[in-house]
Design a protein around this nucleic acid. Sequence first.
DNA 1: CGCTCCTTTGATCAGAATCAAACAACGTGG
DNA 2: CCACGTTGTTTGATTCTGATCAAAGGAGCG
Lengths: 244, 244
Amino acid sequence: MEDIAEMIMTSRMPAPIQARLSRIADLTATEEAAVAGLLRNRMSLKRGADFIKDGKPPSAIYLVEKGWAVRYAITTEGKRQIMNVALPGDLVGYHCSLIGVAHYSAMPLSETVLSVIEPAQFSEVLAAHPKLSRAFSRLAASDLAGLRVQTIRLGRLTAEQRIAHFLSELWHRSVRIEAIRDGWMMLPMTQTDISDTLGLSLVHTNRQLQSLKRDGLILLKRDRLRVVDAGALARLGDYSPLAL
Amino acid sequence: MEDIAEMIMTSRMPAPIQARLSRIADLTATEEAAVAGLLRNRMSLKRGADFIKDGKPPSAIYLVEKGWAVRYAITTEGKRQIMNVALPGDLVGYHCSLIGVAHYSAMPLSETVLSVIEPAQFSEVLAAHPKLSRAFSRLAASDLAGLRVQTIRLGRLTAEQRIAHFLSELWHRSVRIEAIRDGWMMLPMTQTDISDTLGLSLVHTNRQLQSLKRDGLILLKRDRLRVVDAGALARLGDYSPLAL
DNA sequence: CGCTCCTTTGATCAGAATCAAACAACGTGG
DNA sequence: CCACGTTGTTTGATTCTGATCAAAGGAGCG
């Protein structure tokens, strides 16, 4: 019974965004259907395939369904800064499509499935459903909040703290979207990706990660992470989960 | 004649936001009046008087009319990180009011005049005027863009570059809002404020500023800044003005 | 099996933090 | 109107975090 109900549900609206929105506002069947209507086009990309390019007009709005993606920019000196990481259920490119030009690039970190949303259709749906409009505004607000946290992380935390803080955030967000399996989280980021997110050098990132392992706070294999002592890690990185 | 026309104009909608919105979309008289209706309550605050407090539900949305304000947070170690600076025409607290809790504090850097907007009234107006709604969404988008730029600045620029980049941004934004008088810009920030924005120590900030003065890129007095060679400063800081 | 990408280690260097203290400007009250 | 306290700026000396350089291991893949 449960299963059937769930299947019907997910056949209407893909799981990640469904879970996300339902935590923000509870939607009527009509509203859910409207969202589902936006998400009919899927696209599968492999690591590194930019789907938004800095300086170009974005061609769509993207919803991450499976896998991870990052927003990033490259300085004239060729250094890369990753601004944030988008997990399943996160929307990428909405605000760029408002301005008409992307001010960052976006790419998947691993094999990733995206829903491709037509901007015009998106604004139609928002206009027609005020409750959805509000829900998506809140999603945008949490994006903003995440960026502000990134600012603190880069500006005022030490290398060790940044890593502890960042891993805490990833862990916490993964818990929220139920992406922890058997106590492990898939972590499709290289250490280079992590350093480019945290404004550190690769070598230093590597050493700090090792130190966290040595201290028994985390376990880290190839592409999986396990946070052993989430409390201690959060305290070390001065991390507190965002409201919402 | 000009003066009278201008006075009528400003009696409808205060100058800073008027200029801002009109660059984004051209509004009808009705829409302008709707905005003006939101901005009837003014408030004057002195430096340091928090009008948004981290962790508390924000009581209103604020529009900076005169003076500068900053969004900031304090780490558990007591370090302050300023996330961004709000100049006249900038909106503060909109997204916090959506979430219902502020994830930063905000305070004026100097004697500052704010318009206090009732959140409920604000969303009513947005609901009633789709064009305004879109215009404010774009404002929000440029906020986001500014934060992303701050991320790059903190993560991948050297101290010298950060300062050059930041001063370039302030200068450019001041030009946009016509706040340059006789080639000088009011800069109501202490060097401590600047260091807390750029994630630097006070001492280092001071030395880098002096170096920019020595190199003839800027002139800096007590509370005024003059950018002598905007091109060189921008190049040094890898700054490029945001679209919009 | 050989290539490529990623991680790890070692050694050195430099940018920026910290510590300490003097100096300058400002506002206030006597 | 000046003395004084406060806040902000400047300077000097030292320390340390984290960058850079160089190169060796590992893992996955065609």
